[in-house]
Nucleic acid binder design. Structure first.
Lengths: 204, 204
DNA sequence: CAGATTATGGAGCGAATGATTCAGAATAGA
DNA sequence: TCTATTCTGAATCATTCGCTCCATAATCTG
């Protein structure tokens, strides 16, 4: 269903190139990454890069889009857990694992790279990422409110407040990953935070 | 005690120029902010800028330092509190207030702006900021370890771990401030988080 | 006043930037 | 094989970059 198009075939793996590019963007930022750094790292010429991805801003936008979806997927899997505690635990731990991935040229956490405003691409990266995160937050809040109605949370704990707290932790873990914290450190922090969240009677 | 030096006096306010420069750097990052943007926004010529601040990296570093000092001051005041709980509370609440300042052209929070996302080959921004924050983190950790030795914390709570958690919350609050959260929301989150931190017997 | 000192604006340097052009190479369908 | 199509590498375009030079202006001390 993906018929080889006419013409000379591309001599490099587009997906792999995209991953390398994302890695560079994550390390140096948008303006901090030059097209020459990209072509050198990808091992292709400038014209090949432009033919495959368009302008630098287009390439950046595509990199952001392809990786931002991973976070949404984590939220989606997390809220499917049966209890509020399991939801929070899975969300934080899987996110930490994702933030600190270094294998296969994975770019790490792109959230703060996305904050850049001056891309001037036709695609508004900032707005896109902000919207995606709003959706994720809403999903978590909805799930915790549902848990509250099910009596999973002590009456002193408002679901919205707990969602805000988890979200704050999530952002903090992301930032610390970017500052160089190791996976073990962040997992320890996340685990510790989870133990502090009060649950209804069944435990502690 | 600040005798007017010989020579032609500077025609612009150095501190105000530094604030403007910081504002631009926060918005566009280091490599995203050109010297021409700076001179245009500051209303001065290139030679004046270089005479007053040195290179672009020097100007950037000075801008970072001047704002990092605010956070250091908060940490310093916080660790002077008599109890661990008071330390954490003061740290988080005062930081939130600082993060959400909007007066006098305050450029917003340093740590989660575009500053962190945009580096250059000649200046490793992340490493520089991380280094400045390490001092604050060490101060907090030392204070909590002291509290642990004084028996203020339950034996199940390691001081280092608690410090890491508070630090993670701090980063998260900063990011959420940058994303547009209001002061009231963040204060509510911080207050809620503080209530979850266990204390030794004297208070439930 | 004269001499020393410092700041200013404008011009412009060499290097790097994002992006394009173009002749040629590699494929598909006919 | 021939034509249409697509990709490649090298050269290179115009622009912008960080930064400096320099003649001049404004202030100091004496």
């Amino acid at each position: 269903m993906a018929p080889r198009p006419a013409g000379r075939p591309r001599a490099f793996d587009r997906d792999e190139a995209l991953r390398h590019a994302a890695h560079l963007f994550w390390q140096h930022g948008f303006s901090g990454t030059s097209t020459r750094m990209l072509t050198a790292a990808l091992g292709i010429s400038s014209s090949s890069l432009y033919a495959a991805f368009g302008t630098k801003a287009d390439l950046f936008a595509e990199a952001i889009r392809s990786y931002a979806l991973r976070y949404s997927a984590i939220y989606e899997r997390a809220v499917a857990e049966p209890t509020a505690a399991a939801v929070v635990e899975r969300l934080l731990l899987e996110s930490v694992t994702e933030f600190t991935r270094t294998d296969e040229g994975h770019p790490g956490c792109l959230t703060s790279s996305a904050v850049m405003a001056d891309t001037s691409s036709t695609f508004d990266v900032r707005k896109y990422v902000a919207g995606l995160q709003r959706t994720d937050e809403a999903r978590l809040r909805g799930r915790l409110e549902q848990a509250a109605r099910a009596g999973e949370l002590p009456p002193t704990v408002q679901a919205t407040m707990l969602a805000d707290l988890v979200q704050t932790l999530w952002q903090g873990l992301s930032t610390r990953a970017e500052l160089g914290a190791t996976r073990e450190e962040l997992i320890a922090v996340a685990t510790f935070a989870i133990t502090l969240i009060p649950q209804e009677s069944t435990n502690s």
